[in-house]
Nucleic acid binder design. Structure first.
Lengths: 245, 245
DNA sequence: GCAAAAGTGTTTACAGTACACCCATGG
DNA sequence: CCATGGGTGTACTGTAAACACTTTTGC
């Protein structure tokens, strides 16, 4: 039975099929002081339906009727963080019938990668309170809705993606040290990496370039600074290169 | 602005946010005579909205209000093919505002893998006409809606998945030869593989077992038959094994 | 001169790749 | 006996993994 077709052409009442809302949720990743963090909002208070009150949740919103999904996810991100030009990727849809206690709400999960240093939370624009949480601390929390499951799924998606695409750089400032890069990969992959092998591998890929600059003001030998070179990377990909960590 | 929350709690009219339908579409893969094929339906005729008439499209339907997404995808599959216990996996959501000419319809894409030998199309139950198409021939066709894009996305998802999970077996009969398995991987990956190396690699993984049986009635040396052993595979995974082709 | 992190090379083992011939069966 | 696809081994190459010490700076 082709419900969609009937609905759109026949005169029968298919309004029940429109009794579903859909939203986007966004796992916003940041990297700070060797920790991978996720931006959560605390459910409040004046503006929201009184369910899951005071609990932490992923930022999200309904999708406007004339808005693409990616646009909606991007809007949520921008309203919350104020940043633009951010890496954003869809993960998947969550649509269990009872996942929202008030009605049927299907949500499309995204993750985004922001340079945490550049960013300021704007708590009064969107959420009553917003805060970065490590993945470890989130696992100790009961989040609103099915957001614990959703976070695990999104984190796994990041783990997979980071192995085949050079997106980790989106989480670092434009100039970074190899130690920072290694700590980032360790945080995402949740395991330690061997320093010499990591450096060999990363440098052999030939799309991060040595800036011939050094850290300043550190109480030890200053590290060299590098940057990611998108053009070099794309040239390699065009020639059949395959990124793997 | 937390639209979802306002909508559910306030008395304002948010009905425009319910003016969106959502559906599932399913890329049903089968493997037959060394070709990877996708089951398409021809848009017809009596039952459907007169758009994209006579064009080929992916099978899909609206999601019922009290139905999980996976269930809906499974239902589409079962109504069309009659088969059960089939591998099914969500790919992603497609939600461009204008992707459906009649209204806003967000669709969740799935792919499923069926053993083509076991299956009979039931054209009178669901679609006016259903037919297997090779990926090559689909690329020559203009499909309805944005289904050409969707097919490419879904096919790429299969390509990725098959490299890290042993799901190829879902497309083969329970007993298969190594040549059939190789042809399957060649069809999915769209490249040739070297016979000796392929066999070494597959057999070294140790979860396909030699049945000590042979093909019958072939006009050449009969091939040995193998089967996939799920229990062995899971044991390996539990011990930290990682499948790769 | 000491604390702290940066930086660097070599060896070993394993997996990927390339490659060509004999075997078993039906007709 | 011929046509057809089935089945096998070896050498080479490159990448992954394991591993410990020296260097540079600030204080």
């Amino acid at each position: 039975m082709k419900l969609l077709e009937k609905m759109l052409s026949a005169s029968s009442d298919f309004s029940e099929y429109f009794a579903t809302a859909f939203s986007v949720d966004n796992i916003i990743f940041g990297f700070d002081e060797a920790d991978l963090k996720i931006l959560l909002i605390r459910r409040g208070l004046e503006r929201q339906t009184p369910i899951y009150q005071h609990m932490w949740a992923l930022p999200g919103d309904l999708v406007h009727p004339t808005e693409d999904l990616d646009t909606a996810a991007y809007r949520v991100l921008e309203e919350l963080t104020g940043v633009k030009n951010v890496y954003l990727e869809q993960v998947k849809a969550f649509g269990a019938v009872k996942r929202h206690p008030v009605g049927r709400v299907i949500t499309i999960l995204y993750f985004s990668l922001v340079k945490i240093s550049r960013y300021e939370v704007m708590p009064n624009s969107f959420a009553d309170e917003a805060q970065w949480h490590t993945i470890g601390s989130i696992r100790q929390l009961a989040l609103a809705f099915d957001h614990n499951d959703i976070v695990e799924t999104g984190f796994n998606a990041l783990k997979q993606r980071v192995r085949v695409a050079p997106i980790g750089f989106e989480l670092l400032p434009p100039k970074f040290t190899l130690t920072e890069l290694q700590q980032l990969y360790e945080a995402i992959l949740e395991r330690t990496l061997e320093k010499r092998n990591f450096r060999k591998k990363i440098l052999s890929m030939d799309f991060i370039v040595d800036l011939n600059e050094s850290q300043e003001g550190v109480a030890h030998r200053p590290a060299r600074l590098y940057e990611f070179n998108q053009a070099k990377y794309e040239k390699l990909v065009a020639n059949g290169f395959n990124f793997e960590i």
